[in-house]
Amino acid sequence: MTKTHSPTMSYDPRQLSDEELAQRAHDELFHITRAYEELMRRYQRTLFNVCSRYLGNERDADDVCQEVMLKVLYGLKNFEGKSKFKTWLYSITYNECITQYRKERRKRRLLDALSLDPLEEASEETSPKVEEKTGLEHWLVHVNQIDREILVLRFVAELEFQEIADIMHMGLSATKMRYKRALDKLREKFSGTIET
């Protein structure tokens, strides 16, 4: 980030792009939080939806969202704008969700659609029952963890493939291939009811 703005200049945060708001927040924090608050307002709902799809419950999703918002608040001072704000935000979210998985796994075995243990997922006794899930959760039960994460970032966060590849530290072609294979698998199971 190179341009700076005077914190005293009046502006309507709703009229600015994410990148302009990120620049404002970079310059203004921690004295003025208007730009930061607008960024969080724009993404709060999707952030929560992404976290709850990853974690399988609203309590953990809420905790992770709070942690993400704090990391964004303190991280904006160092955000250089090398990637889009949205990509940076979901990269933080993805990492926080992974951290939360690991914490929860140490405390107890997770028996939800995003279990980290592939053997557990393969077991019919411990795998979540399809009837208990609706919408995206209904589909996610049938693909592995990495493919689930790609689908969540694509369908819930509505990210581009390059953004997903960057967040997951994968090549673009590998990301697209995994996405296509996951959809093919789901199409087989659900008779082509999923749209790309």
Rank of each mutant, 00 (worst) to 15 (best):
R24F: 05
A122S: 12
T93P: 09
A157F: 09
F161V: 09
R14L: 13
A22N: 00
F48G: 07
E124L: 14
Y90L: 00
E132N: 15
K84R: 15
Q15H: 06
T33V: 13
L29F: 00
F48Q: 06
V50M: 00
E96V: 01
P128G: 02
T4N: 07
L70E: 11
Y179H: 10
R24E: 04
T126Y: 12
E80F: 03
T8R: 14
H169A: 12
A165K: 06
Q145F: 11
R106M: 13
G75H: 06
D117T: 01
E96L: 01
A61E: 09
Q162I: 13
L183E: 07
V68T: 06
H5G: 04
E163P: 00
R45I: 09
Q23I: 04
L73Q: 13
L140S: 03
S123R: 02
V64F: 02
L183R: 14
I167E: 02
Q100M: 08
R53S: 13
L29D: 03
Q23L: 09
Y94P: 05
Y101L: 14
Y11C: 08
L73A: 15
M69A: 10
R34F: 12
G56Q: 07
R45E: 15
T46F: 04
G192P: 01
E158W: 02
L159Q: 06
I150T: 00
R59G: 09
K176Q: 15
G171Q: 05
E158K: 13
E158D: 05
Y179F: 10
C65N: 05
L111N: 11
F30W: 06
H138S: 04
R42Y: 07
E37S: 15
E37C: 14
V143R: 00
Q100W: 08
R178G: 06
E37Y: 13
E38K: 03
V143Y: 01
H26K: 13
Q66N: 03
L76H: 01
E80V: 03
E131F: 09
M170W: 05
Y54R: 02
G192M: 04
E121L: 10
L119A: 08
T134Q: 14
G56D: 06
M170C: 05
K176I: 14
R59C: 05
A174M: 13
Y54Q: 02
D12C: 05
A61T: 12
E158Q: 11
L114N: 04
